[in-house]
Write a protein that binds this DNA or RNA. Structure first.
Lengths: 150, 150
DNA sequence: GCTTGTTAGTTACAAAATCAACTATTATCC
DNA sequence: GGATAATAGTTGATTTTGTAACTAACAAGC
C-alpha cells in the first residue's frame, strides 16, 4: 500500500476523523436493515423513516416529521405520496388550519410497521452486542448529542 | 405532539435505534464541514473523499480508494475525472498491469488537501469537545468497529 | 378589510446517485 | 496457445435527490 506523506508533519488520519467515521459506521450499519425494507417492501429510506415516525409516535404532520428527522419537505412530500398510494397511510386536512395534513397509518401500514420494528429491534440488539451494555448506552448518548437530539 | 401508540406494548423508540442515530449524527456532523468543500471549492462529497484519501495515504488506485471508503466504482470514476479536470490529481497507467491507474495529487491538489485538512482537524476537535478525552477515544473505537474498520 | 408576510405542502427542472452493460487488459484452465 | 473467466475502470439509461419557484391557507399590521 502506497504511503507517501504529503507533508513532513502529517499526523492527521482520515480513519479518526469523526464525520468520516460516523458516515462509514452509519452506512455499514444501515446496509443490512436496508435490504429488508428495500427488497421486501420496495421502500426507500425516507419512506421507512416516515413510516417509523408515524408508527412510533402516532399521528403527525409532514412538517413535524421533517423537523424531527431533519428531512427536507420535498422528500417527505414524495415519501408520503408513495406511502399513500400503497395504502400505508391516510391524510386528513386539519379543520383548524386547512394548510396542515394529519398523517396516520392504516391498519395495513401499522402491520408493516410492526413487522419492520421487530426486525429493527433484533438488528439493533445485534449491533449493540459489539459492546458492553454500558458502552452501548454511552454510544447512544453521544450520538444523540452529536445529532443535536438532546 | 401526537403520541398515540400503535400497539399496547411498544417499547421501541426510534430515537434509540442505532442505524437511525448514526445517520442523524453523521448528517449533522457533516453539514458544517460540507459547506467548506462545497462552497469554497465546489467539490462534491465523493470528491473530497478521494482527495483526502490521496492526501492522507499517498498514491492509490481507484479500486483501493473504493475498498477503503466503500464507495462504488462509478462514483469514484466520476470523482477522479472531475479532480483531474481541476488539475488536483494525475493518473498514470501501471506498466505491470495496464488496467490499473495510479492516482497522485498535483502540487495544487496537495495544497487544497492541506487547507481542508487543517479545517477538518479544527472541526474534529470541536466535535470531540462535546466529550471527555476518554469518551471521544471510545467513540472513535466504537465507530470503527461498527464500520468494520478494525 | 386589505396589503404584506409566513407557513404547509407540491411541482418542475437540474444535479447526482444507482444499475447494467460495455471496453480493455490480465489470469486461469484445458 | 486459445477459450473462458475475472478485474479495473468507463459510459449510458433510469431513479432519486436537491433547488427554486409555485399554490393555497393563514397571520399581522395598519
Amino acid at each position: 500500500m502506497a504511503n507517501a506523506k504529503i507533508t513532513e508533519k502529517d499526523d492527521f488520519d482520515l480513519r479518526n476523523f469523526l464525520p468520516f467515521l460516523l458516515n462509514q459506521a452509519a452506512e455499514e450499519s444501515s446496509l443490512e436493515f436496508q435490504q429488508v425494507y428495500k427488497n421486501r417492501y420496495g421502500m426507500l429510506r425516507t419512506e421507512w423513516r416516515v413510516l417509523f415516525h408515524l408508527g412510533n409516535y402516532g399521528e403527525m404532520t409532514a412538517k413535524e416529521i421533517g423537523e424531527r428527522a431533519k428531512i427536507h419537505k420535498t422528500k417527505i412530500s414524495r415519501a408520503v405520496h408513495k406511502l399513500e398510494q400503497r395504502r400505508y397511510l391516510t391524510r386528513t386536512r386539519d379543520d383548524k388550519d386547512r394548510r396542515v395534513e394529519r398523517l396516520t397509518l392504516t391498519a395495513n401500514g401499522a402491520a408493516v410497521y410492526r413487522e419492520l420494528r421487530g426486525i429493527a429491534e433484533e438488528y439493533d440488539a445485534k449491533l449493540a452486542a459489539h459492546f458492553t451494555r454500558g458502552e452501548a448506552a454511552l454510544l447512544r448518548m453521544m450520538l444523540r448529542r452529536l445529532a443535536g437530539m438532546e
